[in-house]
Design a protein around this nucleic acid. Structure first.
Length: 979
RNA sequence: GCCCCCGUAGCCCAACAGGCAGAGGCGACCCACUUAAAAUGGGUUCAGUGCGGGUUCGAAUCCCGCCGGGGGCACCA
């Protein structure tokens, strides 16, 4: 059996041996080291610094206990191929990989096993490192780190301190370009407060404005918290008893459950750390235009930020029983042009003005539908509030269609026509958006229409509906305004945009309203009640005032504790409260420190929350640049060199846009479209504002790699069976095949790869059975990087055959001797070679590795057919293959007589003269259908070509004497005869 | 409900900027090597581009409407 296989065939065993050897050599020679211009690793003499540079990055992995499956390295291989290609073009390439190592699974595993999460996490990282090495990743090892390294999280804490010690000054000029608004050190705000330039806006009991000097330390801290970019707030947050922690909005799904674990989430008022990401909402939206990112991701971020431009309009509410008292009630609307159609108002159940505006008794003639059978408005509103507060988000969701609400007994004055309109309370208006109150315009809003119909309220159309628009629906489309005039202003006949402009101008003039921008984005909840995360660099003094820990005391190390678990609760126990595990480490919590603020040594309590998992991934790309720097998170010259703004903006940027800088290529899954990528952009912009980085964005170009999916087979009971053991049974009648497992029929479905689905294939198995290079070639030839595709192990052999043929084109399988000959290329081979070089180069450049591989297979197949393989053809092919199959390529390169690694050997150049053919095949069409083909000189002139085509007997036969109306000539490729 | 992406051979995928539908791989079939099988090598097969219209001399490609698949958002005023 095996003894019949030629001794020097490129088998999995030989591949494995070659691969291990080259991996050792790359490591010992430091092949993938890139050169830094400054900082601790400065190598200013490195010749690459004078050439181009590129930073290539993958979203770093979380080292889970299950290791990698074949889907995970797809993006890693793609970036490795690109990096290896770029090195052969002379570029200084930075490509490394670290680990996102804080996080919930390690902590949960630690809780189960009693092992420290650091121990299990580090063991997992070792497994990942071995797996990545085995598939031939050309990562620069010395730049790798994990977020749990104290040297790393020291700087994560340092950035937190910078954010904490900053405020957003809306009126300060932007650091670069036009406009205003940037983060500034809080000390500059304190100076303004001290000098009286800015008022702390605090008053004594008599209403006299207090000066900064008159405030107590506690009240000063409170004032500053109103400005800081990181602050503690007592606010409704997402409390998840099942996980024992609070969660950010981004971590809660639309149906009110935790993204991780799928536990119910409740709104609770709790004191928590927040990040003022909302201060950056505009820049986070606007700068998306300057990035080369998938449109889909940019759209998701725009939706998440949810900027909408509209107007705030002041209505005044009063009760019929007490005419004298008027309460201003502001609404936010994106359609101020429809103000004349506002026939009622709705406020959220939590609206703070409700107690003031609700009267003691129903007004005369209150519609019985409005009162919900309650004896008076106060009872009705209180009952409604009670029901609304107990409804979970899921329940609210479920009743989204039916509109419920109750009349408050109050009326409001519509400022455009002075009409009295009833004020309702209803839960379809949310306190968390706009002002928590709306003007209801049933004519132009379907929700308001539904409510109006349910409660018998009037409907006035103020936009002329389009022809054929159903009579029983709101019209939300474009059309001329109608019924929209008072003594001073008329919108009638105007389109929506013009009408908005005119009415806003009128409202402003009368002091009744103003243009307003609102956002769906909320501040980022930044604290978690977990053990396995970065401690906050914050201590609390005995007055309850927070202080940041001085830089020289960083890192604030995570202490060892006997018990890693936060207290978790029954998932449905909404009344439980979070308890952080660190709070139990009393020796760590209670400290005496001199913060260097002139107050001397004092007693403090450490903050016991930890940072969310996103903190470490917010800025790791910056640390890759300069990981050994102990003085700064990154040397400014190093940052400017690698990711500073480029001279030209990205291709799709709007005219006049400047380049924001950032990582040249970032590849990762679309699941991080909002969370990680939004948080990271926010931190980066703060660091930019404070002058620590020259780039305005972290990731200049982003690609979302597709997922590798797999078939799942289930038995009669619906349980997954091992996919690898399933047999395909061809249908004898040519229909769809069926599947069996251990002789029993099973069903096939398509989906994710996962342990519980019993369809996991690992890179280790593939390396063992085929070799790493084959595995890499297969993954890269399955399709475009962005595409989702099914894994098919039996198809891997195609890639192996390709490498075997390539091997055989250089090495004799029986003797191991190199068989290439030093003879000049025949013309066909020469042309094929240069066409391939040109094509492969363009494909690598554009990350189209699948088509690059196809072209190389084509050339290789051509060489296979030659009697002897010329060196002049196969050497460039080996170089071209190197980015995808680096071990095999290095081995062949060495056997071909080269001493140095080909990692930096210049990529072959195509000779343009050999890309143009002397003769080409011209297609002759009649009425767009191909009727003949002509071999013509490549430089044939159109008139000659036309004559040739018309003279073609086959064309004449098709024409059959019909008059020719027109002849389209695209010399030299095509002639189309129109009759 | 709104928005985005994708439908090409039995399967995975090519087709650059509208111009010959096929580069590559898997499978299937045939042949060679083999006692045989596997492995390897050589060859063959297979769609008119989801459906219906339109623009054009010419459409997989552009436009409109459906159908199917995937994803995002969802009482956001």
């Amino acid at each position: 059996m095996s003894e019949r296989i030629p001794a020097h065939r490129y088998t999995a065993a030989l591949a494995n041996e070659i691969e291990a050897r080259w991996q050792d050599r790359w490591e010992s020679e430091g092949t993938f080291r890139s050169a830094n211009p400054a900082g601790p690793w400065a190598e200013p003499q490195d010749p690459r610094l004078g050439r181009s540079h590129v930073m290539v990055m993958d979203m770093f992995p979380y080292p889970s206990g299950t290791g990698l499956h074949v889907g995970h390295p797809l993006g890693f291989i793609a970036t490795d191929v690109y990096s290896r290609y770029m090195r052969t073009t002379g570029a200084n390439v930075l490509h490394t990989m670290g680990f996102d190592a804080f996080g919930l699974p390690a902590e949960q595993y630690a809780v189960q096993t009693g092992q420290h999460p650091r121990v299990t996490t580090e063991a997992n990282m070792e497994i990942y490192r071995a797996q990545l090495r085995r598939i031939g990743m050309g990562h620069e090892q010395r730049r790798s780190f994990a977020t749990i390294d104290p040297d790393y999280y020291r700087w994560t804490q340092w950035i937190f301190t910078q954010i904490y010690e900053s405020w957003y000054d809306e009126s300060a000029p932007a650091r670069r370009g036009g406009g205003t608004g940037r983060a500034r050190p809080i000390s500059e705000l304190v100076a303004q407060l001290e000098s009286g330039e800015r008022s702390p806006e605090r008053w004594d009991d008599e209403g006299r404005a207090l000066t900064w000097g008159e405030l107590s330390a506690v009240r000063r801290a409170e004032v500053l918290d109103g400005y800081r970019l990181a602050y503690v707030s007592q606010a409704p947050v997402n409390w998840c008893p099942g996980l024992g922690t609070v969660l950010s909005n981004e971590e809660v799904t639309a149906d009110g459950r935790s993204e991780r674990g799928n536990f119910p989430v409740f709104k609770r008022n709790l004191s928590q750390w927040m990040m003022r990401i909302t201060a950056y909402a505009d820049r986070l939206v606007d700068d998306l235009d300057r990035l080369d990112w998938p449109e889909k991701v940019r759209l998701m971020q725009r939706n998440w930020i949810g900027r909408s431009v509209g107007a705030t309009v002041r209505f005044s509410a009063r009760t019929p029983l007490d005419d004298a008292v008027e309460w201003p009630l502001e609404v936010f609307t994106t359609r101020p042009d429809t103000l004349f159609g506002a026939t009622f108002m709705v406020v959220a159940p939590e609206h703070p003005s409700l107690p003031e505006i609700v009267p003691d008794a129903w007004p005369e003639g209150t519609d019985p539908r409005w009162s919900d059978g309650a004896p008076d408005p106060r009872t009705a509103v209180a009952a409604y509030q009670r029901v609304a507060s107990t409804k979970s988000d899921v329940e609210r969701q479920a009743d989204a269609r039916t509109k419920t609400g109750v009349f408050t007994g109050a009326f409001a004055t519509n400022p455009v026509d002075g009409l009295q309109i009833p004020v309702f309370v209803a839960d379809y208006v949310l306190m968390g958006y706009g002002t928590g109150a709306i003007m209801a315009v049933p004519g132009q809003d379907q929700r308001d229409w539904d409510f109006a119909v349910a409660y018998g309220l009037p409907i006035i159309r103020t936009v002329e509906p389009a022809e054929g628009h159903p009579q029983d629906q709101a019209f939300t489309g474009e059309g001329p305004a109608i019924n929209s005039a008072n003594d001073e202003v008329s919108l009638d006949g105007l389109g929506i945009a013009e009408a908005k402009e005119r009415i806003i101008a009128w409202l402003v003039e009368r002091g009744l309203g103003r243009e307003t921008v609102t956002y769906r984005l909320r501040d980022w909840l930044f604290s978690r009640q977990r053990y396995w995360g970065e401690p906050f660099p914050i201590v609390w003094d005995e007055d309850g005032v927070a202080h940041s820990v001085p830089d020289e005391m960083l890192p604030v190390a995570l202490p060892d504790v006997p018990d890693y678990s936060p207290r978790t609760f029954e998932p449905e126990d909404a009344d439980s409260s979070p308890e952080a595990p660190l709070a139990r480490a009393t020796e760590w919590v209670e400290v005496e420190l001199d913060l260097g603020d002139g107050r001397g040594t004092r007693r403090y309590r450490r903050e016991t929350n930890t940072m969310p998992n996103w903190a470490g991934s917010c800025w790791y790309y910056l640390r890759y640049l300069d990981p050994a720097n102990g003085e700064a998170l990154v040397d400014p010259a190093v940052e400017r060199y690698w990711i500073g703004p480029r001279p030209a903006p990205v291709a799709a940027a709007p005219a006049g846009a400047s380049d924001p800088g950032g990582v040249d290529l970032y590849v990762g899954g679309v699941e991080h479209a909002v969370l990680h990528l939004l948080y990271s952009r926010f931190w980066h912009k703060v660091l930019f504002d404070l002058g620590y980085v020259s780039s305005e964005e972290p990731f200049r170009r982003l690609i979302n790699q597709g997922m590798i999916e797999a078939y799942v087979y289930r038995d009669a009971r619906g349980f997954p069976v091992p996919a690898a053991e399933v047999e395909e049974v061809a249908d004898p009648h040519g229909g769809a095949p069926t599947y069996t497992w251990e002789g029993e029929p099973v069903t096939q479905e398509y989906g994710k790869m996962g342990k519980s689905l019993k369809n996991v294939v690992t890179p280790d198995e593939m390396c063992e059975q085929y070799g790493a290079d084959t595995f890499r070639v297969y993954e890269m030839s399955m399709g475009p990087l962005e595409q989702y595709r099914p894994w098919e192990t039996r198809a891997v052999v195609g890639s192996q055959r390709f490498l075997q043929r390539l091997w055989r084109n250089v090495v004799d399988e029986e003797t191991g001797a190199v068989t290439v000959v030093d003879v000049p290329l025949d013309e066909a081979t020469d042309r094929a070679l240069h066409r391939t070089i040109a094509g492969v180069r363009a494909d690598y450049e554009a990350l189209r590795t699948n088509t690059a591989v196809a072209k190389m297979i084509e050339l290789n197949n051509h060489l296979t057919k030659l009697e002897k393989v010329p060196r002049e053809a196969v050497e460039p092919l080996v170089q071209m293959v190197a980015p995808v199959a680096p071990h095999l390529a290095e081995e062949l390169w060495e056997r071909l007589g080269h001493k140095d690694s080909l990692a930096y050997a210049p990529f072959p150049e195509a000779d343009p003269a050999k890309l143009v053919e002397d003769t080409v095949t011209c297609v002759v069409q009649v009425r767009g259908k191909v009727r003949d083909r002509l071999e013509v000189p490549a430089d044939v002139d159109p008139a000659t070509l036309e004559a040739l085509a018309l003279a073609s007997p086959r064309v004449q036969a098709v024409l059959d004497g019909a008059p020719v109306r027109k002849v389209v000539v695209r010399a030299p490729n095509l002639v189309n005869v129109v009759v």
